[in-house]
């Protein structure tokens, strides 16, 4: 292969037309959901998903993919399979109206995090945590303990122990952002140079 890049010239020849590559299932690993807290006092909200081999790797990749530039003070990740999703409702029907206020008959009580969707097209927002013996009962508990003031169209619950949180000694992960101004549009002001050039070329 003849390329302008010497590194490419050193690559082995690959006959693309006559060799088909097929990936194994799960070659790209499993999926994780990422939640970000933009600033103190604001709730965590869902930012997107990524692929990773485990929670630690997902946490590192989440920092690079979702908090490389904008203000962020904390994030957490959870395996997609560990997110329990409610029905979705329409118009003025709140999904909490479909949740029966079942009595939690004890069992193994665990902590669950609750996320509400207030507007279609927007992201789920973290509203707090409850104690329950199953994800369904966690939604029922949320209905009583964290009654929403707005219509909720969809709920996610996640067992707190399934989440990889930002640890207290990791809180300074984002302190380096001010040193990386070269990643921001504001660091590329060409106005003076342009004005000088236009003056000169008059």
């Amino acid at each position: 292969m003849k390329s302008l890049d010497p590194r490419v010239n050193r690559l082995p020849e690959i006959d693309i037309e006559n060799s088909v590559s097929r990936k194994d299932p799960l070659d790209q690993l499993g999926t994780y959901e990422v939640f970000v807290q933009p600033k103190e006092g604001k709730p965590f909200q869902h930012e997107g998903a990524l692929h990773a081999s485990d929670r630690e790797m997902a946490f590192v990749l989440a920092k690079e993919s979702f908090t490389r530039r904008f203000q962020c003070i904390s994030l957490f990740v959870v395996r997609t399979t560990n997110v329990f999703v409610s029905d979705t409702t329409e118009d003025s029907e709140s999904v909490y109206d479909r949740i029966k206020g079942d009595v939690d008959k004890g069992g193994n009580q665990q902590s669950y995090e609750i996320f509400n969707l207030y507007k279609r097209g927007k992201q789920h927002v973290h509203i707090g945590s409850v104690s329950a013996s199953s994800p369904e009962l966690a939604m029922a508990a949320a209905k009583n303990k964290l009654p929403p003031s707005k219509t909720v169209y969809n709920i996610w619950t996640v067992k707190t122990s399934d989440i990889r949180f930002t640890q207290p000694d990791e809180m300074d992960l984002w302190n380096t952002l001010p040193d990386k101004k070269f990643r921001d549009a504001s660091d590329y002001k060409g106005g003076d140079k342009l004005k000088e050039f236009l003056e000169r070329s008059k």
Binding site: L26, G30, G48, S53, V85
Partner: peptide
Amino acid sequence: ALRSPKTVYQMPLA
């Protein structure tokens, strides 16, 4: 090397 036999694929949620 990173793939775990326990991994289950699920579509991202949103």
